[in-house]
Amino acid sequence: MTTTLLDDKKKAARGGRTEPVLTVDDLTVVYEVERPVTAVKNASLTLHRGEILGLAGESGCGKTTLAYAVNRLHRPPARIASGSITFHDRDGSDIDVLALEDASLRAFRWDKLSMVFQGAMNALNPVTTVRAQLRDTLLAHRPRTPRAEVRRRSEEVLTRVGVDPRRLGSYAHELSGGMRQRVMIAMAMLLEPQIMIMDEPTTALDVVVQRDILREIVRLRDELDFAVVFITHDLPLLLEISDRIAVMLEGEIVELDTSERLYREARHPYTRKLLGSFPSLSGERGGFIRSGFDDFAATVDGTDAATTEEDRA
């Protein structure tokens, strides 16, 4: 019980605070292919300071596109067709993310808003050490950082994500998958961004390692007070870690609510369907039919459960 997050006091504090850090208004992203595809349709959401916002949806629903657009990382043929993205800096000034130019955009990324990519643990450079990569990132954004400061900061972020600072001299292949993912998170928080976007950061990891990393993220959020956009298809996971959850379906945010309410009283049928897709570990079996010598077998055979709506294609 080293960390006591989410105890009542803090929860109350966060609940009472509604200072926004990022406002996405009516954002539409279109892929200019032969028949243009609207990947994100009129998405609007507000991210509050220190909040974990879950973004749930299945493959191709546009959740990654949305995250990329917020970061201006989307590449042609994707384009932002309408809408605005505003970043509210800690000092009170507002930044129009869509109007940022080359240099200021680069400064904005990582400094104000950083991203942990899907499969990011394979994005570490295999031929240089962790130390060199942390140093490069830091120097790229804060060119005149003294050497001692670079070392101190690198050690600090690694310690924060629960990696022994002695690992600074290691190469990527010497680290386990969970470690690499932690190093990536360390790198993302190196410049103390106010927002971290995490795109399926734990999908490739084992459940136990995943749990460790989630705990780390929640703890860091409580210590450093950055906002997190957590993208995943794993709704139960989001229900546990996030404050609010946005559910996306075919480019649209169909439901956005607190985790608690989303779980108890989901309004959109798709949300309910997603919730129903995950059998509960300790609860009832839901839509599942146990095989074998089960008395269920006789009763449910009529309901041809295999015909789901997946045959959309």
């Binding site: 028949r35 595809v37 990947a39 191709g60 990654t64 596109t65 990329y68 590449r75």
Partner: peptide, 19 residues
Amino acid sequence: MTNLSPANEPSIVAEAEAE
């Protein structure tokens, strides 16, 4: 951070094409 290129570009284009 050149190695941080997002290799996992959303696959919606490919999907649209397949469709």
